[in-house]
Structure formats: structure tokens, C-alpha cells
Design a protein around this nucleic acid. Structure first.
Ligand SMILES: [Mn+2]
Ligand SMILES: [Mn+2]
Ligand SMILES: [Zn+2]
Ligand SMILES: [Zn+2]
Lengths: 125, 125
DNA sequence: CTCAGATTTAGACTTAATCTACATCTGTTG
DNA sequence: CAACAGATGTAGATTAAGTCTAAATCTGAG
């Protein structure tokens, strides 16, 4: 973590151990709840501040995909997302799984793009 | 509007006149603010309820694309979106402007998908 | 015209997120 | 080590989007 210019306080390490290792897409409140299980005194403000710090240093992405709260994503490589209509659960889709042609728009400098897919898990066949 | 099974009250007509005709992607608060200019007594609850009603009847889409609040979109045909990093402004991208290959995911019934592009307006050349 | 159901309203409430002011920690310097 | 300044963390207040409630008002079928 210090390799990224972030001083590794105990709180930051506890937050990192959860949020940088998950394959889910937790909200800030979910991160706070999880981290309090092992670090009961950590404050809400520290969790929100640390998530923004990690984001600014490129360790996390923040997405708004519906459900009313932002989610955090330690997978910082380009990829797409599937959002379950019923549960709101978010799953990663590998970049290679969807072919997207050139994204060039007039008068726009594109920073990033991705596909958001919505639907439901299919019933057993 | 009655063709969609919605009783056209004065409030609903005032809301529809703005939100079904705009080419922007206003938030509920922006809709409320705009509608109050011509209908000063309309309540916040009526605006939120009416937007959800229009959405349920297929007159509007609701998107969460960042910025902390949902936006409403009278363009209910499939299309993509560009989000300006600096201003948060949202612009439509025609469906035909981006080629997206097959979107098929294991165990998923896809309801809809689209591309979200982020970046900034290019400076004059 | 009546009145039951539909619609609207003001304001209370909930929740995500941010802010503030103060406390604590930590690394550096003498 | 001791002092201290800057960095970090904390509790609780605050903001803002959105929802809910209970009461008022409207409307059209009979
Ligand atoms: Mn929503
Ligand atoms: Mn919010
Ligand atoms: Zn992801
Ligand atoms: Zn649109």
C-alpha cells in the first residue's frame, strides 16, 4: 500500500484487506459493516475517506449502477458489468466476452467505456 | 397520455409537457423545479410519483449514471450514453453509432444492455 | 348531485454521503 | 528521548435524494 503513496494505518489496512480482495461490489456502508467486524472502532468517516483515497490512487473504481448507492470495485482492469434485476447483485463480465466496435464520438475525448447488461439469472433448463 | 391508461390530471400534464419532451436527462429535483415554474403548487411527492408512474407505463426510463441522483429519459428506444466527466451532462448516443457483438452470458436472461462512455468534450482543434 | 376511489399535498421520515471540530497518532527533529 | 507539526481518525451534525404518511381535494360513475 505504501508503494502507492498511502500511509498504511491500521484502519486503512483493515479496510484494504476486505475491499481490495473481494470479488463483489460492496457499497460504502457494506464495507463499513464488514470492517467493523474485525475493527469495531473504525468510523464511518474513515471508511468513506479511505475508499475515496484508494480510488484516487487507482486501487479502486467507484460505480453507480442503480440501487441508490455507489459501489466499489477492486477490479481496475477494463471489464463490463451485469446487474441482476431482482437482487441488484453485480457481476463482472470479462472484457473479451463482449465485442465492442470503435467508440468514437464527435467532439469527445473518450476516457473509458463499458457495457452494462441488465436481466435476471435464468431458471434451471 | 390516457392512451397509456394514465388519467391526465393537470399536474401530470404539466410534468409530461416538460419531461416527455426534453432531450436532456433531468433529475427528479430538476423536473420539480422546472414544472413549478408553470405550476407553482405542484408538490415534490407528485413529481416523484408521476415520474415512477410514467416509467411503469413505458413513457420514461430511469438511469443512474453517477452524480448521486437518478435521471429520467423520455427516449425509450435502445441507445447508449455519454457522460461528461467535468459537468456530469449526459448525451444520447444513437444505437447504430457503436457496434456491440452478441451479449450472451451463461445462466443469464438479458433484458437490456447499453454502452456507457465517459470522457470530456474535446477542445477546439 | 353524491360519494367512493383516485389524486395531490405538506411535512415527517429514512438513508447515503459529506462536513466539522476536535482528538489521536506518527514520523521527524533537536 | 521529548517536543511538535502534520497526518489521520472520530463522533456527531448536516445535507440532499428519495420515500412515506395522513389528511385534503378532486373527479366521474351512478
Ligand atoms: Mn432509483
Ligand atoms: Mn444521496
Ligand atoms: Zn467490476
Ligand atoms: Zn438517453
Amino acid at each position: 500500500m505504501s508503494q502507492y503513496g498511502i500511509r498504511p494505518s491500521a484502519q486503512r489496512v483493515a479496510i484494504a484487506r476486505y475491499v481490495l480482495a473481494t470479488d463483489q461490489h460492496p457499497t460504502a456502508e457494506q464495507v463499513w459493516s464488514r470492517v467493523r467486524a474485525t475493527f469495531p472502532t473504525v468510523s464511518r468517516a474513515t471508511v468513506y475517506n479511505t475508499l475515496q483515497l484508494f480510488k484516487q490512487h487507482g486501487l479502486l473504481l467507484e460505480h453507480e449502477l442503480g440501487g441508490g448507492s455507489a459501489v466499489f470495485d477492486p477490479n481496475v482492469e477494463p471489464h463490463h458489468h451485469f446487474v441482476d434485476d431482482e437482487t441488484g447483485e453485480i457481476r463482472d463480465i470479462p472484457w473479451s466476452a463482449i465485442a465492442v466496435g470503435d467508440v468514437q464520438l464527435p467532439d469527445v475525448q473518450v476516457r473509458e467505456y463499458s457495457v452494462v447488461v441488465r436481466g435476471r439469472r435464468a431458471d434451471a433448463p
